[in-house]
Design a protein around this nucleic acid. Structure first.
Length: 561
RNA sequence: GCGCCUAUAGCCCAAUGGAUAGGGCAGUAGCCUCCGGAGCUACGGGUGCAGGUUCGAUUCCUGCUAGGCGCACCA
């Protein structure tokens, strides 16, 4: 809603600038006109700081400039459709022009929400730009951990937000189904299978220790009806690897489904980063002069784009490093038409960022066409004590355990409770609490409570929400609630710009708070039927916005709790 | 040594470069003949240190201090 008002105000202010004064010709570049939403409602619903910005150029007191602009603005406004939308426009120290909405202005917000319903918040800001977000991409060598869980929560919600604000965003999972990790996986299963069949073999030092390996070995033995350990030697190592990777990918996909994360594209390293493809891309880089040979290895000149040092792409023993197939993979993504690529990675990858950005540049793109979002770790707390997560020793907490213990809704929400690039403490006890301390229940409760009221109104009094022509809503709590709803599209834009859905969860808490305050102060089902119908419309609108926001976060919006 | 992240009230966290720095927990005192008390109200308490840019800095820049993480011909 504010979009339209803000854009129109921007034009009006533009027309109202004090023309004909010194320095005005360069005003556009000196200071773009911005219509802000003040944090404090005492400063109005909207405000403009242009007078402060122009003060230096015009060599004039900002209060005086603002007064001039306001005078012109009020003149412009008399002919403008917005003229009834403002109760007051005034200049405040040190030179802000503040706009105070009239009841009509507030009701326009309400009508917009009620009209757009599920579409409220949508915009065309992204201009259908094709975005590829790759996240989780855990190797199929073990179950998903809470670290992956947080990445999944961030990535999925972020894509939902990006789609809503008009980007053509897709979720992609890159399956590393080749390489050392998978070789170790195959060997680990093989050795566990030997053990199970009574052959005491030394388990490899670098093998995966988790109990799930034993389960996979048992499954393998059962499937192939193997009776004695001698039969294991006839099995091709590739079979161990394939079986293990398939089995674990099955688990991972199930975990993600239950976590309410659904990927659009599954890419497999074995299909994309073939030896031929790697040779081709390195030959291409070589032709462009981005490759040199040193001590028998091939080096990629990533320093050319700001990396600390050049990186080996082909080892002296002829093998490729981790980077090489990844270059091919990113080439593949760009070739599929994505204008922007976002890789969501764990904190252990932050040294990797300049390298992969350099690769994007070497592929003929800009370093800005690829963003890397680093998701910091979440530390799980139980009874005030951190829980160990060492994957090496198999003592890790899995996403599955957390999901099963606190539920998908709480888990999804809690992973977003701090900015993505900051460490997060995840309190299992708090996530399970059914009280106001637990933010996800606080929000869901508001949603369920609204449903309850509307149900009651429909069933007992046959009252339906009014849809337009409001006139009776004028309490502070009612205005606060409408003001907060108007902010929603802006919150989505901020999330998109920051590539972080964090602000949305916080906003929903505030919105729920506005509703609870309203509820406590005023009765919806009043003696005055017309007032009841308008208040039903107000809470219905709040329900819509709460529901829309929760949906983007992958959290359910229950009608009853 | 180099790089990244963090530093805000007793505790946990907010604040697209804006105005009097917000909210939760804990503490104290209140609100159910009434639509869901899983809720609401009131009260205290503050930006690590030193500079710089700006009309304006919690925010941007430099240096320092403290904590976390990362720096392979590993993936």
């Amino acid at each position: 809603m504010f979009f339209d008002i803000r854009r129109q105000l921007q034009e009006l202010v533009q027309k109202s600038l004090p023309t004909g004064q010194a320095g005005l010709s360069s005003l556009e570049t000196v200071a773009p006109i911005l219509i802000d939403i003040p944090a404090d409602k005492a400063h109005g619903e909207l405000s403009c700081n242009i007078a402060l910005q122009l003060s230096r150029t015009l060599k004039k007191n900002p209060m005086a400039i603002a007064a001039d602009i306001l005078k012109n603005l009020q003149q412009e406004l008399t002919q403008h459709p917005l003229k009834n939308f403002f109760a007051n426009i005034e200049v405040k120290q040190p030179g802000f022009i503040n706009f105070y909405l009239s009841p009509q202005g507030f009701y326009a917000i309400l009508e917009t929400v009620l009209n757009k319903k599920d579409d409220y918040g949508k915009s065309s800001h992204g201009a259908r730009t094709p975005f590829c977000l790759e996240f989780v991409s855990a190797n199929p060598t073990g179950p998903l951990t809470v670290a992956h869980g947080r990445q999944a929560a961030v990535g999925d919600s972020l894509v939902n937000v990006l789609k809503t604000v008009g980007y053509k965003a897709q979720k992609e999972y890159y399956v590393n189904d080749e390489g050392n990790q998978i070789n170790i996986l195959g060997r680990s299963i093989y050795f566990r299978a030997k053990e199970i069949l009574g052959d005491k073999a030394e388990f490899p030092e670098d093998g995966y220790q988790g109990d799930y390996i034993r389960t996979i070995a048992e499954e393998f033995i059962k499937k192939h009806a193997i009776k004695a350990s001698g039969a294991l030697e006839k099995i091709n190592p590739q079979q161990w690897r394939q079986f293990g990777a398939d089995y674990l990918m099955g688990l991972i996909k199930k975990d993600l489904e239950d976590f309410n994360v659904h990927f659009d594209i599954w890419s497999y390293q074995s299909k994309i980063a073939t030896t031929k493809a790697m040779e081709r891309v390195l030959a291409d880089f070589n032709a462009k002069g981005y490759i040199y040979e040193h001590e028998g290895a091939w080096w990629f000149k990533s320093t050319q784009w700001g990396d600390d040092k050049d990186r080996v792409v082909k080892k002296s023993n002829g093998e490729y490093t981790y980077l090489t197939p990844d270059i091919v993979y990113h080439q593949d993504k760009f070739a599929r038409g994505f204008k922007h690529i976002v890789d969501i990675l764990g904190p252990d990858h932050h040294g990797y960022i300049p390298r992969i950005k350099a690769a994007a540049a070497a592929l003929g793109k800009s370093v800005d066409d690829l963003d890397v979002v680093i998701v910091q770790l979440a530390t799980i707390y139980r009874s005030g004590k951190p829980v160990s997560m060492s994957t090496r020793r198999g003592e890790f907490i899995t996403l599955r355990e957390v999901m099963d213990e606190v539920g998908t809704d709480a888990a999804r929400f809690f992973f977003l409770m701090r900015q993505t690039d900051a460490h997060l403490d995840f309190d299992l006890e708090l996530a399970k609490k059914t009280s106001a301390e637990n933010p996800v229940y606080y929000i869901q409760y508001a949603h369920a409570r609204i449903h309850s009221i509307i149900r009651k109104a429909t069933d007992e009094s046959h009252l339906t929400p009014r849809l337009k022509s409001f006139s009776l809503l004028k309490e502070v709590e009612e205005m606060d609630l409408m003001r907060k709803m108007a902010l929603y599209p802006q919150v989505l834009l901020i999330c998109a710009k920051q590539l972080d859905p964090f602000a949305l969860g916080r906003y929903l808490q505030e919105l729920a708070g506005c509703f609870h305050k309203f509820y406590d102060a005023h009765r919806v089902l009043d003696e005055n039927k017309e007032l009841s119908r308008e208040r039903l419309a107000l809470i219905e609108a709040a329900r819509i916005v709460l529901g829309n926001g929760l949906r983007l976060l992958g959290v359910t919006a229950p009608e009853k709790m």
